[in-house]
């Protein structure tokens, strides 16, 4: 049990530390880093190296945005194997639909409830 949390903490932390290195040393903007992580996740997922990492580190690998990319890759793989060519178009977004829809829904609710505040 404890070792599970430790693995999630260490691997997840490592993904973030790499992101910080990119921010501090390459002047990449946050948006570029996010895009980079997602695309890297798709590539690593496609190469079959990301899923073993998820099996090892659990949320430590699935919570970072690379995990989101891996989800897109595995979704496409599954959809193509089940539905053939049309899976190329449906697989990615179907697999990631819950996350994206949740972001839209909760983002909207927060916009209704709150207004922007000054930074103190």
């Amino acid at each position: 049990m404890f070792i599970e949390y430790l693995k999630a903490f260490l691997i997840g932390g490592l993904f973030c530390a790499v992101g910080q290195v990119l921010i501090d040393y390459t002047k990449l903007t946050p948006a570029r880093i996010l895009v980079g992580y997602v695309v890297a996740g798709v590539v690593l997922g496609a190469l079959g190296v990301y899923q073993p990492l998820v099996d090892f580190a659990g949320a430590g690998a699935s919570v970072p945005l690379t995990g989101f990319g891996n989800l897109l890759a595995s979704g496409v793989r599954k959809a193509v194997s089940e539905d053939g060519f049309i899976g190329v178009l449906t697989g990615g977004l179907v697999a990631s639909a819950a996350g994206i829809t949740a972001a839209v829904l909760f983002g909207f609710i927060m916009a209704v409830l709150f207004k922007s505040k000054d930074k103190s």
Binding site: G12, A31, G67, F106, G107
Partner: peptide
Amino acid sequence: AGTLVPITGFANAVA
């Protein structure tokens, strides 16, 4: 990056 890279960073960028 600790709050950027996890999926929470994505949600923050939407909200």
